[in-house]
Design a protein around this nucleic acid. Structure first.
Lengths: 237, 237
DNA sequence: AAGTGGTCTAGACCACCAT
DNA sequence: TGGTGGTCTAGACCACTTA
């Protein structure tokens, strides 16, 4: 019966504290020396635990300043959570326009994906994303209503940063990873209208499940992407 | 003028030896103690260099056995270089049928993608991939002819393992990373015939550039994917 | 100047594999 | 049993940020 390595246990304790909301984004964790004392391990072991969390992008280190819960800034969203690139290869941040926001009962498939009890309420948001002033992506986002009390059209439209930055700061929902399923589909009436293309045009359907700590799902979205002048980028290996 | 950390230099030396073909896949590297002596660094520093190469999947460690150049087995191909999943979510290894192989002059775009001199020769391979006996993907692969002398239809068809395993062992070409660009397109006559779908059906076009050490491109491929019962999977974060 | 993380060392001991 | 990588420690010194 082998026990887990010490640094794994330390990692777990750190993660538990982070999940609990001790050390909100922006405030530094105690120093490595302090934490290693608190956990009665050597600095090397503490560092190995932090190394893992940094690799998972839960934490971020800054030499001379401290260690922080990784913030959801524009760069991170662009690099990790926005896969659409202009065909010229340059990756620009899209303008996001929230078209609608309302609360509704989740249908069974949505409940399943978000691991919610049947009949739970969800917030449904429609976003239109434009790149260089031309509309490219139509997003349909489903959020568990219980986690997003107080989310309104106004809050959505007046947020200063990215969506995930809003989630992190206002709702203490920290999106860490996600999985996307990509298929080809035809533009329906709605996509055709919003994106300025003909009905039936081939386009991408991208489904995303976003996960927070311990791989708990917190967002489900379906995007329709016009790939006439853009592509979906994916790294292998 | 800050100099690079010691472990970065050690990493470079190791990578240079690996690229040179010292330690072919299957034979272990010298032990960490031996290597640390050779480079006149502590074992900890040597380990940090190896850590990075393991993270990049250049090396693989096995406790009690040694450290090896990471082999291209079926699991690795399936996990890192095959993104297509059946809609039931299960990931099965496809049957690959090589339809054709011939050498030809590369057109300018292909030369650019593979960073070859204009007019270089390439090997063009057509593969049909089936999952559970139904054809799903049609691959068109371009390889720089100079690196793949001796690659024939027969070699392709009779290889025991994956394509990248063949590349690694027979041609000393080690594919490490890649980038894919995904778009929606319509099935043409060829795709329709090979995949048993109607002309004009929306499908995925996936372009891949595969890279070896120091990000040198060694393969360019364009795949057409029927996503009626399969999807393209992508991890975020 | 004081405090933070980053690098590097030397050595002990453990877990696993081959023989 | 001997050799391999994996864990853990203690401490020195460096690089960077802030005040």
């Amino acid at each position: 019966m082998p026990s887990a390595p010490l640094y794994k246990e330390v990692r777990e304790k750190l993660l538990a504290s982070i999940t609990r909301g001790l050390w909100p984004p922006g405030t530094p964790l105690p120093s490595e020396a302090a934490l290693s004392q608190e956990f009665s391990v050597s600095v090397g072991t503490l560092r190995k635990a932090v190394d893992e969390l940094v690799l998972e992008k839960v934490l971020m280190r800054q030499q001379g300043r401290g260690t922080f819960v990784a913030p959801h800034n524009v760069d991170r969203t662009l690099h990790d959570f926005f896969r659409i690139r202009h065909e010229d290869g340059v990756s620009r941040f899209p303008q996001v326009e929230t078209l609608s926001l309302r609360r509704q009962d989740a249908d069974p498939p949505t409940c399943a994906r978000l691991r919610l009890a049947p009949g739970s309420r969800v917030v449904r948001v429609i976003n239109l994303l434009s790149i260089d002033s031309s509309p490219v992506v139509l997003d349909e986002i489903f959020l568990p209503a219980e986690r997003f009390e107080g989310l309104t059209l106004d809050v959505m439209r007046k947020r200063p940063g990215t969506i995930y930055h809003l989630f992190q700061h206002r709702f203490a929902v920290n999106v860490l990873r996600g999985e996307e399923h990509v298929r080809a589909c035809r533009a329906g009436a709605r996509e055709a209208r919003s994106l300025g293309i003909r009905i039936g045009t081939p386009m991408l359907e991208v489904e995303r499940i976003s996960l927070t700590y311990y791989d708990v799902p917190v967002e489900w979205r379906r995007s329709r992407v016009n790939t006439a002048h853009h592509y979906y980028n994916s790294e292998l290996g």
